[in-house]
Amino acid sequence: MNALRLYGRYAAASIAGQMQYPGAFALTAVAQFANTFVGFAGVWALFARFGHIGGWSLGEIALFYGAISMAFAIADALSRGFDVFGQEFVKTGNFDRLLLRPRATSLQLAGYEVRLASLGRLSQGAVVLAVGIWLAPIRWSLGDATLLAWAVAGGVAMFYGLLILQATLSFWTVESLEVVNIVTYGGVEAGQYPLDIYARWFRDLMMFVVPIGCVGYLPLTAILGRPNVFGAPAWAAAASPLVGWAFLGAALVIWGAGVRRYTSTGS
C-alpha cells in the first residue's frame, strides 16, 4: 500500500477515535473559533478608526489574513504528531515504537492524529477569506483563483515545515520549546498583513528567514495587481509559493538528521 493511501487510513482511524468524544473536540473547536474571531474583530475595529493601513483596505487585508489563517489551520490539523512529539514520543520513549515499523517516521507522525478541533480556526479563516474575496477590488479570474489556492497550499507546506523543525528540536531538548511559537503563531500574525507595512528589518526577517512572504505577501500582491516592496516581477511573485515546498523538503532533511541522532544516542 502506498504512502498516500496509508495516510488516508491513518486519518480515518484518528477521526474515528476522536468521534468517541464528540463534546471534547466540539468545545475546543468553538474555543479556537472564538479566539481567532476576536482577533479579526480587533482588525475590524482598527480599520473603523484608521480607514486603511499603508494604503491597504480592510477587504485586501481580509484576503491576506484569511489565506494565512487557512494555511496554518490546515497544517496545524495535520501535524498533531509533530506538535506533541517531545512530550508524547521522546520523553516517554514511544518513538521507539515508530522506529519498529517499516515506514518513514515522518509519515507515521503525520498520521498520528488529524485534529478535528482545528476546524475552529479553519472555519474562521474561511469566513475571513470569503470576506476578502468579496471585498477585494479586483475581478476574479480563474487564474487568480488558482493562484490563491496555490498560495494557500504553499503556506500549508511552509507551516508544516516549521512544525517539523519545532519537533526536531525535541531530539535535543524538550524544555520550554513553546518559544518556537514566536515563529509559528508569530508568523501567522505577521503574515496577516502585507509585509510592506512593517519596518525593513522585520519585513526581511519574514521574507528571507521564515519565508512567510513567499506564501502570502508575494502571490497575493500578484493577484491584487499591486507592486511588491521587494521588487520581484509578477511571474516570480506567482511562483514564490514553491519556496514553501522547498522549506518543507529542507525541514524533512533536518528531521532525518534528528532521527539519526536519536538512534545513535538512544533516549
Binding site: 478608526r49 484608521f50 480607514g51 493601513i53 494604503g55 500574525e189 498583513y193 507595512i197
Partner: peptide
C-alpha cells in the same frame, strides 16, 4: 516581548496614515 514588537509594528503602520 516578541508579540509586543509585532503589535507595535502594526499600530505604527496604522498611525502613519492617520
Amino acid at each position: 516581548c516578541w508579540w509586543g514588537v509585532m503589535k507595535i509594528l502594526v499600530l505604527a503602520a496604522f498611525y502613519r496614515g492617520a
